[in-house]
Design a protein around this nucleic acid. Structure first.
Lengths: 103, 103
DNA sequence: TTGATAGGCAAGTGAACACTTGCCTATAGT
DNA sequence: ACTATAGGCAAGTGTTCACTTGCCTATCAA
C-alpha cells in the first residue's frame, strides 16, 4: 500500500523525469530517441540514451508512463492517474483512505 | 522556478516525511517530540530526534510545514498550498505556466 | 547479407541522502 | 543556584541514486 506511493514520489523526485512528463504532456506517444532529442534541444540536457531510458523505466514503474511497441519502435504515453493520489491524500482530507504504515 | 519545485518533490520523496505530513494533517501544530512519539507509537518508526528534526527542516524548506515558536516550544503547522503546483502542472494542462528549464 | 536504426542489459563511479552520535544553547520548574 | 525539558549544530557512515561506458538483440532498408 506504500510501495506504490513510494515508486510514485520517487519518480517525481528527479527534475529530468519531471521535464519528461512535461514533454509527454505536450506530445504523448514519443519514442526514446524523440524524448532524447527534445530534452537536448529544448532543455539543454545532454543526456545519454541510457540515462533517458532508465528515467522512463522509473516513470513506468510509477505508472506515470505506459508503453506500446510497434515493430522496432516503442511509444511512451503519459498517464496522470497516479497523481490524483497526492491530491486525495493531503488536499482532500477524509475523502479517501489516508494513513500509511511503515517505510 | 525550478528550485521551488525541486525542494517540494524532494521533500515528498521520503516515506517518513510523507508520514509526518499525514500526522500533521490529522493534528496540526505539534512539537518535535510529539511528532517523534507519534511516529514511534503509531508507525513503529524508532527514529532519533535529530532524524525527525532534519525531516522537518526539509519539509519547511519545501514550504509544506511552517513553524512558530512559543517559549521553549516550537510548533509545526501543515501548509498544503505547494501541493497544488502538482495538480496544476500535469492534471490541468494549460491553466497555469508549465515548462521547466534545466535541472 | 550487409548496414543502419531503435532499443536493452549490466557493471562501475561519484555524488546525494537518511540517519546516527556527541556536544551545545535556551526555556522552565524546584 | 541546579536540573530537566525542548531544541539546535556538526561531523561521520552506509546506502541509494543518476549517469556513463561497453556490449548485445531486434527490426527495417539497400
Amino acid at each position: 500500500m506504500e510501495c506504490v506511493a513510494d515508486d510514485l514520489f520517487k519518480a517525481l523526485a528527479d527534475p529530468t523525469r519531471r521535464t519528461i512528463l512535461d514533454e509527454l504532456t505536450e506530445s504523448s506517444g514519443q519514442t526514446l530517441f524523440e524524448i532524447c532529442s527534445r530534452l537536448s534541444m529544448r532543455h539543454g540536457l545532454g543526456l545519454s540514451r541510457q540515462a533517458v531510458s532508465q528515467h522512463l523505466a522509473v516513470l513506468e514503474a510509477a505508472g506515470l508512463v505506459e508503453t506500446r511497441r510497434e515493430g522496432r519502435y516503442k511509444f511512451h504515453d503519459l498517464n496522470t492517474a497516479p497523481l490524483r493520489e497526492i491530491t486525495e491524500r493531503w488536499l482532500a482530507p477524509g475523502e479517501s483512505a489516508p494513513e500509511e504504515s511503515t517505510p
